Each structure stands twice: as C-alpha cells, then as structure tokens.
Amino acid sequence: MNTKHFFKLASVCCLAFGLLACASAPKEQVVEKDPRDSLEGFNRAMWELNYEILDPNLLRPATVGYMAVVPTPARRGVDNFLSNLREPDSFVNAALQAKPASMAVSAGRFLVNSTIGVFGLFDVATKIGLNERREDFGQTLAVWGVGEGSFLMVPARGPSTIRDTGGDLVDALYSPLGLFNTPLTITRYVLSGLTQREKAMAMEHLLEDSFDPYAFIREAYLQNRLFEIYDGNPPEQEEYDDSYLDEFF
C-alpha cells in the first residue's frame, strides 16, 4: 500500500468512523497495551457505544436517507461549504505555526470560494491549483511542543487525543464558526457527520476485515495526525511501516 494513499484514506476513515463503523470486534482477545492509550478501558467502552449502538441505529441510517433524498451535486455543495468555513481557522493556525505559504493558500481559498464559488458551494480554488492545506490548533499545539496526551475515543464523535480535543474547542471560536448560534452549530455538526459518514461507505471493508477494529482505528488516527503535523514528512524514525497493517487484517 502506498504510504501517501494510506494517510489520505485514514484521514477520512478516522473522521467518519467516529460514529463508527461496521465490523464485529472479537469479544475475547489478548491485546497488548499501547502506551499511547492510557485510557483504553474507557475508550473501548466508547467505541462499543459509537459503533455498536450509535452508528447502526442512528448515523448510518440517517446517512443512507440523506443520500437518498439529497442529490449528489447538492451533497457535494454542502461538503464544499463546510470545508470553506474551516479556512479561516486554517489561516490562523498557519500563522501561529509560522507557515506563510499555508496562510496564503488558506486566505486565497476562502476569498475565491466565498466569491466566485458562491459562498463556498463550489470549490473553485482547487480547480485553479489552490489545494487545501488544513491546519488546526491541535497541530499548532504539537508544533509548540505540547504532548498529545492519551488517545481518546470521544462519545458520538470518534478518535482524538487529549491535545486534539482541546484544540478543537479553540478552533470552534474562530470566525465565522465562532459567530454561529447553537442551532447553526448543531446543524453544522449534523451535516458534517453525514458527509463524512458518506465518504466512509466505500471503506467499511477495512474494518470488516480487521482483527481488532478499535486498534486499527487508533493506529490509523495517530499515524495520520503525525503525517498532518509534519506536513506529510514525519521524522524518519516515525515513518509508517505498511507491514504493521498485517496485525489488523
């Protein structure tokens, strides 16, 4: 498996399978403790809640209904609109990380997509070569030297870390997201959850075939975050070894 393709896949897989996924984890197995997951007992309980209860009974049926009722072009527009709302916090975090090139890209994308792209419904920026460079406060904290803390499976949301969960709270304060009232915020989260779950439909076999779906998602999330923090070039000793996947399939 190509490493770059794996990380692109993992970023979608981890987000969408936060509510989560479609595999049957073995009920009894010996799992070696991961030092990055000091809250594993709690996290596995939240995994069970997310993927055995919330996903099959709520998120997946809602996503299937959403796909049946809303045409594909409209769903793509919703996804573009939500992505455009995140460009200002990418700009701020790029500034905090001293990344002028990423700042310019985020500012350009927001300007182009908010105008020519009709408030972000159309991703014109990508078509003219301004590809998204997502930066968030969790990455900023990592660049500043803050440790990631334990892996954390957030109820009704999915994989994260203590550092990234705190970072998400800060990112929600930036304009225009910080200007949203409660109903708009809830609507954004619902639509985001539906669009991310739709993207994961074609990837469900990854969890169906894995030996330990929870451990697979944990590793995919942590490796993907390392990839994002180092802008696709993590330290050599941290590079992802594709043979590690053998433990999960």
Rank of each mutant, 00 (worst) to 15 (best):
M1E: 06
N2F: 06
N2G: 05
T3K: 15
H5A: 14
F6Q: 09
K8H: 14
C13W: 12
C13F: 15
L15F: 09
F17Y: 13
F17C: 08
A21T: 08
P26T: 00
E28C: 04
E28F: 10
Q29R: 12
V30C: 03
V30H: 07
V30E: 00
N43K: 15
W47G: 12
L49R: 00
N50I: 01
D55V: 04
N57E: 10
G65N: 03
P71I: 08
V78K: 04
S83K: 14
V92H: 00
V92A: 09
N93M: 04
A98Y: 10
A101I: 08
M103L: 03
R109V: 04
T115P: 05
R133D: 11
L141V: 06
G145D: 05
V146L: 08
V146C: 03
M153R: 06
A156M: 14
P159H: 05
T161P: 02
D164Q: 11
G166F: 10
G166K: 06
G167I: 08
G167C: 08
D171I: 09
L177M: 08
G178A: 09
F180A: 15
T182W: 15
P183S: 09
I186E: 00
R188W: 03
Y189F: 07
E198K: 07
K199L: 14
A200N: 04
A202R: 10
E204C: 11
H205K: 13
E208P: 01
D209S: 13
S210Y: 12
F211E: 13
P213T: 05
F216S: 01
A220G: 05
L222D: 02
Q223I: 12
N224S: 15
E228T: 01
Y230P: 01
D231W: 08
P234L: 00
E236T: 14
E239S: 08
Y240E: 01
D242N: 13
Y244P: 01
